[in-house]
Nucleic acid binder design. Sequence first.
DNA 1: ATAGTTATTGCAAGAACTTGCAATAAGGAT
DNA 2: ATCCTTATTGCAAGTTCTTGCAATAACTAT
Lengths: 140, 140
Amino acid sequence: MTCTSEYVPQLRARGFRMTSQRLAILHVLRHAGTHLSPSEIYRQAKRDYPGLTEPTVYRTLELLSDIALVRPSYNSSGHLTYEIAGNDHHHIICKQCGSEIEVEHTLLESLYRLLETTSGYRSIGSHVTFFGVCPQCQTS
Amino acid sequence: MTCTSEYVPQLRARGFRMTSQRLAILHVLRHAGTHLSPSEIYRQAKRDYPGLTEPTVYRTLELLSDIALVRPSYNSSGHLTYEIAGNDHHHIICKQCGSEIEVEHTLLESLYRLLETTSGYRSIGSHVTFFGVCPQCQTS
DNA sequence: ATAGTTATTGCAAGAACTTGCAATAAGGAT
DNA sequence: ATCCTTATTGCAAGTTCTTGCAATAACTAT
């Protein structure tokens, strides 16, 4: 649990507080290493902090997304999932089997610059999930 | 309602059937010209076909997405919305005011080719929604 | 340490979305 | 036209997600 204390200043700096609930949720995401659904996060974090409730999980995930400590993305059936924000990357998910791989952000950088100049919009840096068919599923 | 009959063969070709419910839903999307939430689609299509139920709307939208007659996308609060599939494009939505603009697919084509060669995944052609800050919101 | 401020939470109710299953009706065959 | 097959629907119940509000507890200042 000590490793999640590094997030305290990131919350404080924006006027937010660290709570046991938020620690439990961050701890789960920190050790997951993959995308988790809100209900799965709830189930696991409840082991650390049994008083945890579902609304708190949803509100916490939304807050942590806003300040970019966690990254939201959508799975192939359109549901929101979350992962801890580490190195900047995107995802490709297989439409058929659901397997996913990461895409370096550098591959998208020139596109983002292009979008900003052509659209007038700024700070287009959001995480994107692409859907395709993985090599294994292509051969069947 | 006559203009939506053009979709009949697209359904038939894949073994699906055209029904009054699907016609009503397609009719709504056809005349909307923008993204609509499932509940809004339900509300409007019910005027054409009062017997319509919500589960049918959700199931129909999923089917129509699968066969690419409608295009799903996410609004800034993460909810699924739908629009009729016309010219191939993507979206940028303002995180602050919610205003959206379209992005030509040609801008993304080289990226998609790059992704396919580097990842081994195929038919990465899915619709993508980017989030940024629009020009108006930047000046406030 | 203690008290004060207010972000955060839990609760409860509601809205949005999903699922299983029996009844219905679209489209093909006779 | 009528029957047959089965895709599709409605119903009802369940799950997931959201929201308002009063109670709690994290942080600040004294």
